[in-house]
């Protein structure tokens, strides 16, 4: 009967040798150039954040104003003022 293959074994320091990639024969060319930061890009994201909050604020304000307008116009008709009735003799000569 075979035992499952597990257990421990101690080995010494393993040493291997290989050529460094830098010494390899290659057609690759390394191009070094300092890259300027891309135009418009805001790495900190601060501009984006500010704009986002400004947009949300404007949106909220717009919602409130529009809601106020709609509510003000749809909350029941404005009635004409009370006045004496003509049948009570007000309008007749």
């Amino acid at each position: 009967m075979q035992r499952p293959p597990h257990g421990r074994a101690k080995v010494g320091r393993a040493v291997g040798k290989a050529r460094l990639p830098a010494e390899d024969v290659t057609s690759l060319i390394r191009a070094e150039s300092p890259e300027p930061p891309p135009v418009f890009v805001d790495p900190s994201g601060a501009r984006r954040r500010r704009l986002r909050w400004a947009t949300y604020a404007a949106g909220l304000l717009l919602v409130l104003v529009l809601a106020a307008v709609w509510v003000s116009q749809l909350t029941g008709p404005a009635a004409p003022p009370a006045r004496p009735s003509c049948s009570a003799g007000a309008c007749t000569r």
Partner: peptide, 17 residues
């Protein structure tokens, strides 16, 4: 030309002479 409904029935009125 002036018509009022504030009473029970329609009441019409004219301008004074």
């Amino acid at each position: 030309p002036v018509i009022d409904f504030s009473g029970d029935t329609a009441t019409s009125a004219r301008m004074p002479a």
